[in-house]
Design a protein around this nucleic acid. Structure first.
Lengths: 246, 246
DNA sequence: ACACGTTCTACCATTGAATGGAAAACGACC
DNA sequence: GGTCGTTTTCCATTCAATGGTAGAACGTGT
């Protein structure tokens, strides 16, 4: 028994502690946290105390552990998507005003689209919950728009390892979707999340011609009018791209 | 030379690395990061690599370090202010619709108000930059609203240590402001950030009668109409508070 | 009020993981 | 192609991290 019987470094453990919170859960009991992180209670306790001394975690009375305000602050001030979101916001508002639909912005992370910003339809209550949500590439228009504009090798690698857990889609179908999206300049997908909605997304391409994001809308099936939506999205996406120097 | 010549723990160093990014800076050179974090280059390199393997940081080609998408995701999904922001959003939208002013939501952290959510005036471009911004208690209406409703001991402790770096405000003046805010149920402050604007904020009180946030607006001096603003804010703040169970 | 179960906190001898200087690779710019 | 400022790898040294154990603080039911 010495430094880590389990053979993991301190950094590993810090990460495991921070990742131990299930989605949407903001507060955890110390013992449960130790359990979830797979750490001995005393080790978890020590780590949590250290982290909370720096404000990355918040160790309340009675062993209640939360993420620290300081961590939230730090991440929101220096977020890797900060420039993207700032550049995109005005254009997303334009789309929202003109089309009055749910607008969202996603980036590619692994084989998933990660939603980094979102505006709701006017009138409907703003739903922040879905921000920081993920969708597999092959069942989101944003994911398809992003992947269809990635370098050949990455697409090949993606298709190589592709497997649909639900078993409803084959790699060939996805290949077809990607080819179509690449050729058309936009991706569309009907009723995957909600059977009554369409998703349409276009790539956002920065000054260095890299596809850094996807701008999309989700519209009720009844209001689907590609001719109106796609040009608006493409125009906005170009506007965003122009602002992105890197 | 062994574990930390400088006498700090691994956790200390991890925190220093994450905090090394200056406000608004999303990307840092490895050597500069090492410098800012006060770490030997090889140690910084090792830490950054370990953290980036877990996605908390992102170590790009050429030693470019950013915060990781995964960290952003994690914090946004499990943020300690998640429930607060979700509860507040609809009411903040109402305020925005009815008053058409900049609306903001802040919590108390140390002796500062930390802004956790914000909606801009309709028409003006959404300014996300100020989210995660801080203002000292004594020069923000939100800060005064928050502090004026804290327990006696905390207020005493605050006034005890109070010192205005700018030297323009004395502890007695702040005491007066706090008393006034406590009695009136709202705090107002003219032209501190911008000389032509007023800030007005009211406390948000949860089901357990704790003051957990401040809801405020920033209005141009010309449009200042307390009679209209305060009741609207108070109504919204009560609505938010009612949703907060903890 | 008491006893029990649960969860948090503190302690401390043991030891292997963390450390950082030095040198090798890299890349950019004259 | 040589020089300088990086990043990256290597590896012997050693002290910080570890976690079992014990006790304190809750909370809960009887």
């Amino acid at each position: 028994m010495a430094n880590s019987a389990s053979g993991d470094s301190v950094v590993d453990r810090v990460v495991r502690v921070m990742e131990a919170f299930p989605e949407g859960v903001t507060s955890l009991q110390l013992s449960e946290l130790a359990d979830r992180a797979g750490l001995p209670l005393s080790s978890a306790h020590r780590l949590v105390r250290q982290l909370s001394e720096h404000g990355l975690l918040d160790l309340g009375a009675g062993g209640t552990v939360r993420l620290g305000l300081r961590l939230w602050e730090l991440v929101n001030r220096n977020s890797p998507t900060l420039a993207l979101r700032q550049a995109a916001m005005p254009f997303m508002e334009d789309i929202q005003q003109v089309l009055n639909q749910n607008v969202n912005l996603a980036v590619l992370d692994g084989w998933e689209a990660l939603f980094v910003e979102r505006l709701s339809r006017r009138g409907s209550v703003a739903n922040r919950a879905r921000i920081a949500g993920r969708m597999p590439v092959h069942i989101s228009s944003a994911g398809l728009a992003l992947m269809s504009h990635q370098p050949r090798e990455l697409q090949a690698e993606y298709l190589e390892q592709f497997a649909d857990p639900a078993g409803k889609v084959s790699a060939d179908v996805v290949r077809h979707f990607l080819a179509e999206a690449a050729q058309q300049g936009y991706a569309q997908l009907a009723g995957v999340v909600d059977p009554d909605t369409w998703g349409i997304a276009v790539p956002v391409i920065d000054a260095k011609r890299r596809t850094v994001a996807a701008l999309g809308v989700v519209v009720p099936l009844a209001e689907m009018r590609l001719q109106a939506l796609v040009p608006a999205l493409q125009t906005a996406a170009r506007g965003i791209g122009r602002q992105l120097g890197d």
